[in-house]
Design a protein around this nucleic acid. Structure first.
Length: 565
RNA sequence: CGGGGUGUGGCGCAGUUGGUUAGCGCGCAGCGUUUGGGACGCUGAGGUCGGAGGUUCAAGUCCUCUCACCCCGACCA
C-alpha cells in the first residue's frame, strides 16, 4: 500500500477528546473515527489490525474444535423475556419496534438465539458436545462509553458457546477454551492474566476474566503474590481481620449526641471501627434491605446482589430509610421487624460491638450476634482490599488494574431449561444441555494491545497484529536513484507477498520518521542517498533502538527472517 | 441518573466591560528555496461561532431552553 493513497491521515496534535493512550494514538494515527459516543468507524489500518486479531481468534477456535456460524443482530424481545434476561440487561439492551410494532432487541450477546438454534438441532447425547461460535457485531447501551475502543456501545465480539451432556463435559470444554484463550493472547503479543470473576448479567457459576494488566484499566484486580490467587474485586475474598474474642457483656445504651457516622461514633466512644456494626440500606428490586457489616469493612455490591438474587440494587435514599421507620444515623438490627436483614459474616466473630439503638442520638454497647438480633442471611458481602489476608494461603493481598480482554462463563443449565434445549441420554432420559460461553471483544483487545505496546512516539505493534509488517521509507524521493530503488524494492517485496506500507510521499525525513513511529509498523526500511552509497538499505525495528545496514541483494531474505520470528 | 467540563474552518486553540470585515498555529492547494527526526518564504481556499428562542441600535460575547461530546460517580460487562 502506498501512503499517498492510504485513506486516513496522521495528526500532529493531541486530540482533545481523548485521554486514554490507546484512544489518543488511534486517533492521531488516523485509524479510527468517532461517530457517536461509543460508536466508531475503523479506517483501513485499524481494520487490517482487527482482521489479524479476528483471524488469530478464528484459528484458535477452529483448532479447539469450534464451528463458526452466523446469527442475527436483530432478535425478538420475546426471546429475551423468555429467559428473563431482558430485565438482567435492563437499559443496557438496545430495543426497537418494527412497523407492526413488534418489539426487537439488538443482540448484546447471543445465548438466547443459539440455545434456541441448538434446541432444534440437538436431540440426543450423540449430538454432543458442541462448540459453536460467531464473530459478530453486538450492541450494548453502556451507561458510560469511555476510553475510545475500550468501552463502546457497538463492537465486534467473538462468542463461543459450548454444549455438553454434563458438568464433566462442561469442564472439558471450559479447559479447551482456557487453553485457546491463552494461545490467542500470547499470539497477539498481549500478556493476559486469568482472574476469578463475577458472572454479572450473563449469569452462571464459575467465571474467569482475562485481564491485560495496566494502570489505565478500569477493573481492579486483587491478587496474592505468594500463591496463584487472582480475582476481580467484584468477586475477591479476603481473610477479615479478626477482633479479639471477648466475654459478652450485657447490653447497655449510651448517648451519642449528634454522632451518626461510624467514624464519629468510634472516635467519640474511643472504640476501634472494627468494634462497631454499620447499617447500610439498599433497595433490592424495590424492597428495602437492611445490611449489617462490621464498621471497618465496606459492602461489595456485586456480592450483595448475588446473595440477594436480585436484578436491581441501589443504595436507599434517606427518605426511603426514614419512611421505613428507621432512625438514620442510629439504625440498629436489634428490634427491627418486617425488613430483610443481611449480615456480612464479619459480625459472627467478636463480641461487644457498638451498634445503633434505633433511638436518636443513642447507640448500644456490647451488642452480640446472635444473642441480640436475628438475620435472614449471613454471607460474605465484603469488599476485599490489598493488604488483607489471601483466602487461599493467608499471604498479603496486593491489587492492580486491568482491562478485561476476555470473559468465560460456566453457564450451567438455566438457559437450556428455560428455552427447552434438552437431550436424551443413552437410557432414554431427558436432561437439559449444560452450557458455557466464552467472549472476546476484538476492538477492546486491539486497544489493550496498544495500551501495553507503545512509547511516547506512538504505537509499537506486535508483529502478529500489525496492519503491515514493513514500513518502506525512502528519503529524498526526488533523487532518481532513491526513487528507482524504492519502487523496485516495493515491487520485489510485494512479489514475495510481504505486507508493505510504502511511504511514497515527498516529505522531509522528520515527518516520515515521526509518522513511522506513530503508526508503529514493526520493521522500518530506510532508503536514502547515504545508504545507497554503500549499496545498502537501513533496517530498524520499531521495538528496538539499533539499526542495521543490509546490502540491497540481501534485503528480501533479511526481511523474511525478521518476519518469521 | 447525580456532579464537573467543553462546543468557534479538517485538527488544536484565542476572541476583553456586547461594537466595524471573527483571529492564530497545524493541516490543505499552488509556486519557489530546502532536506537523516515534524524546514522556510510567498500566494490562496476553507466559518450556519452546536441548535432554537429572546434581550439590544448592535450578540461568538448577555438571558432562557435544548442538543452533542468528554471526565468523575452511579450503573453495566
Amino acid at each position: 500500500m502506498r501512503i499517498s493513497k492510504l485513506f486516513g491521515k496522521t495528526q500532529r496534535e493531541m486530540p482533545a477528546e481523548a485521554d486514554t493512550i490507546s484512544h489518543q494514538l488511534l486517533l492521531r494515527a488516523g485509524m479510527i473515527h468517532q461517530v457517536a459516543a461509543g460508536v466508531y468507524s475503523y479506517l483501513p489500518l485499524a481494520w487490517r489490525a482487527l482482521k489479524k486479531i479476528e483471524n488469530i481468534i478464528r484459528e484458535e477456535m477452529d483448532t479447539a474444535g469450534g464451528q463458526e456460524l452466523m446469527m442475527p443482530v436483530l432478535q425478538p424481545l420475546e426471546l429475551w423475556q423468555e429467559t428473563g434476561r431482558d430485565l438482567a440487561f435492563g437499559k443496557g439492551l438496545f430495543t426497537l419496534s418494527d412497523r407492526r410494532d413488534r418489539k426487537l432487541a439488538l443482540g448484546p450477546t447471543h445465548e438466547e438465539v443459539i440455545t434456541q438454534l441448538v434446541r432444534y438441532n440437538v436431540q440426543s447425547y450423540r449430538d454432543l458436545p458442541l462448540l459453536l461460535y460467531q464473530i459478530q457485531t453486538k450492541f450494548r447501551d453502556e451507561p458510560r462509553p469511555r476510553a475510545g475502543l475500550i468501552r463502546v456501545r457497538e463492537f465486534t465480539m467473538k462468542d463461543l458457546y459450548s454444549f455438553d451432556v454434563d458438568e464433566e463435559g462442561l469442564n472439558q470444554s471450559y479447559n479447551k477454551m482456557l487453553q485457546a484463550y491463552h494461545n490467542i493472547y500470547s499470539r497477539c503479543g498481549l500478556p493476559a492474566l486469568l482472574v476469578e470473576a463475577d458472572s454479572g448479567a450473563i449469569g452462571g457459576k464459575d467465571s474467569h476474566e482475562f485481564m491485560a494488566i495496566t494502570e489505565s484499566g478500569e477493573d481492579e484486580i486483587i491478587y496474592c503474590p505468594d500463591c496463584q490467587y487472582t480475582a476481580n474485586t467484584d468477586k475477591a475474598q479476603s481473610i477479615k481481620y479478626k477482633t479479639d474474642s471477648e466475654k459478652p457483656l450485657p447490653l447497655e445504651e449510651v448517648a451519642t449526641p449528634g454522632f451518626t457516622t461510624i467514624e464519629q461514633v468510634s472516635d467519640f466512644l474511643k472504640v476501634p471501627q472494627s468494634h462497631t456494626l454499620k447499617a447500610v440500606f439498599y433497595i433490592a428490586d424495590g424492597k428495602l434491605v437492611f445490611v449489617v457489616i462490621r464498621g471497618d469493612i465496606e459492602v461489595n455490591e456485586v456480592k450483595l446482589k448475588n446473595t440477594l438474587h436480585c436484578i436491581d440494587l441501589r443504595l436507599a435514599s434517606e427518605v426511603e430509610v426514614i419512611d421505613a421507620g428507621i432512625v438514620a444515623g442510629s439504625a440498629s438490627p436489634i428490634g427491627i421487624s418486617g425488613i430483610k436483614i443481611v449480615a456480612d459474616d464479619s459480625i459472627t466473630s467478636g463480641a461487644n460491638f457498638i451498634a445503633g439503638a434505633n433511638k436518636p442520638d443513642t447507640h448500644l454497647r456490647n451488642v452480640d450476634y446472635p444473642r441480640d438480633f436475628k438475620t435472614d442471611i449471613v454471607a460474605d458481602i465484603a469488599q476485599a482490599h490489598a493488604g488483607e489476608g489471601c483466602p487461599n494461603c493467608g499471604g498479603k493481598l496486593s491489587s492492580t488494574h486491568g482491562i478485561e480482554v476476555g470473559h468465560i462463563f460456566k453457564l450451567g443449565t438455566f438457559l437450556s431449561e428455560k428455552l427447552g434445549a434438552f437431550f436424551i441420554d443413552p437410557n432414554g432420559v431427558s436432561h437439559p444441555i449444560v452450557m458455557g460461553c466464552y467472549g472476546i471483544g476484538l476492538g477492546r483487545l486491539l486497544a489493550a494491545a496498544i495500551e501495553l505496546n507503545h512509547d511516547d512516539k506512538g504505537i509499537i505493534w506486535p508483529l502478529a497484529i500489525a496492519p503491515y509488517h514493513i514500513y518502506l521509507c525512502p528519503l529524498y524521493l526526488e533523487n532518481p536513484q532513491v526513487a528507482t530503488t524504492a519502487e523496485n524494492l516495493f515491487a520485489d517485496l510485494k512479489a514475495e507477498c510481504l505486507e508493505v506500507l510504502f511511504d511514497d510521499r515527498q516529505e522531509s525525513p522528520g515527518v516520515k520518521f515521526n509518522d513511522a513511529d506513530l503508526l508503529g509498523i514493526p520493521i522500518r526500511v530506510i532508503i536514502s542517498p547515504r545508504t545507497l552509497e554503500k549499496n545498502s538499505v537501513e533496517i530498524k525495528r520499531r521495538s528496538v533502538k539499533e539499526t542495521e545496514l543490509v546490502p540491497l541483494e540481501e534485503i528480501v531474505t533479511r526481511l523474511k527472517e525478521l518476519i518469521r520470528v
